[in-house]
């Protein structure tokens, strides 16, 4: 920061009695030191004079970038499947482990306001195109719309009892990166895609279980992966042959 006016610093030989009207030259305020009173010094080059700041500048840029980088983990990282913790082939078990914060403890009250480690073993056993969708638990039957094809994704799960299964996403990823069915609600209106249809609540009730989830896709899409996650950031990927 450059200041135009510095506080009055009585220099050597400038100690006049305060209060007395000094005879200053026009344009000068009391306490100012005439420019020609400075001791003549050899001028150093601009680079030498500002060397400290020139060194500090890149450091400041790095610090500033680091300070604002909290947005990446605060806003982007937790929202979406950004951390692949396991990648296996179709038919092989994948281990999905990730922590989440349980704010309310809706299904398991003692977990309220704690960070919970969720560990699930999942195996995608088959991904097949189907001609018809089964009748949904609630509501009218869903007909596969014109211009769409439907896939049935079968997943086998194994986890401790009362593992939270809410926000489950079973996504088919096409070769071009299109994500089919990445909503937490599937085509039949189920909003708990990793639970069996008869399950009550959002936690697992058996040590092992199997679900079939239906996903609409474009007819020409070449499905290459299945992604499984619970809102993220951790997820597992199953590669289709």
């Amino acid at each position: 920061m450059t200041t135009l006016v510095t506080p009055a610093v009585p220099g050597p030989g400038q100690g006049e009695p305060p209060g007395a009207a000094p005879s200053l030259r026009p344009g000068m305020l009391p306490g100012m030191i005439p420019p020609d009173a400075q001791a003549p010094r050899p001028r150093r080059s601009w680079g030498r004079r500002n060397a400290v700041w020139l060194v500090l500048l890149p450091i400041a840029i790095v610090v500033a970038a680091g300070a604002s980088s909290f947005r990446v983990w605060a806003f982007w990282w937790p929202v979406g499947l950004h951390h692949e913790v396991d990648r296996v082939a179709l038919g092989e078990p994948a281990h999905l482990a990730g922590e989440y914060y349980d704010a309310f403890g809706l299904d398991v009250p003692e977990r309220a306001q704690t960070t919970v480690l969720r560990e699930i073993d999942a195996t995608v056993t088959s991904v097949e195109q189907v001609d018809q969708l089964p009748a949904p638990e609630y509501g009218d039957p869903v007909v596969i719309p014109d211009g769409s094809v439907a896939y049935a994704v079968q997943v086998h799960f194994a986890a401790e009892l009362r593992t939270d299964l809410s926000l489950c996403q079973i996504t088919l990823v096409a070769e071009d990166g299109t994500r089919y069915g990445d909503s937490t609600t599937d085509v039949l209106g189920s909003s708990n895609r990793c639970s069996t249809p008869e399950a009550e609540g959002f936690v697992s009730e058996q040590p092992e279980w199997e679900v079939t989830s239906f996903v609409l896709a474009d007819p020409g899409a070449e499905i290459t992966q299945v992604r499984l996650g619970f809102g993220g950031p951790e997820h597992v990927t199953f590669e289709l042959p």
Binding site: T3, T6, V9, G27, L29, M32, Q38, R49
Partner: peptide, 10 residues
């Protein structure tokens, strides 16, 4: 460090 001991000019 040089302090801004300058006069205010128009």
């Amino acid at each position: 460090m040089r302090h801004g001991r300058r006069r205010i000019t128009w």
